[in-house]
Design a protein around this nucleic acid. Sequence first.
DNA 1: TGCATATTTAGACAAATGTCTAAATGATTT
DNA 2: AAATCATTTAGACATTTGTCTAAATATGCA
Lengths: 89, 89
Amino acid sequence: MDEIFKALRDPTRRKILQLLRDGSLTAGEIADEFDISKPSISHHLDLLKRADLITVVREGQFLRHHLNTTVVEDLLRWVIDLNSPDHEK
Amino acid sequence: MDEIFKALRDPTRRKILQLLRDGSLTAGEIADEFDISKPSISHHLDLLKRADLITVVREGQFLRHHLNTTVVEDLLRWVIDLNSPDHEK
DNA sequence: TGCATATTTAGACAAATGTCTAAATGATTT
DNA sequence: AAATCATTTAGACATTTGTCTAAATATGCA
């Protein structure tokens, strides 16, 4: 979970995830949504990738980014567990 | 949400929240669970307080810390929303 | 092959973060 | 009031983080 929370710490990265809710985007399309340089966005995408919160597939010249809902579900379970007293494990 | 994710970034603070799932604890009891100095734990508790993830009530000499499940629910909704395409708002 | 577009890598730098020790504050008890 | 226990505040310090510019790599197309 550490990589996930590390990735979620930054507001830009959280907004990127929200942008990807409704469909995949290329790095350039994502960068267009922010007043931040492309290398910085690339760095944010790298952290999201490391946390497995997004997946990337090359499409020719472009890299298309998708939200990884499986890992979001893992996060969801972690949060639910926080509100479940007397949990096992 | 920024304060919440800021608070959740650190593994010690996440573990503190998990300790508080099953009941409230004093600062000293919390500190006993970690190999970290008391001032550092106090600092972590302060960040959790600022995020409103915990509430504190004085009990004589002690400060008793409780998990604030309301804010955990806010977090829960944020995560759920991340997996809900075509959301409004 | 060579040029244009898309994206990443490298390196620098200021700001934020987590930790510590020492000292201060708050509350209890004798 | 003084001693003691619980906790925080203050200040220092090394590490991590987010950002930038410049340069490198990857792909597509003329």
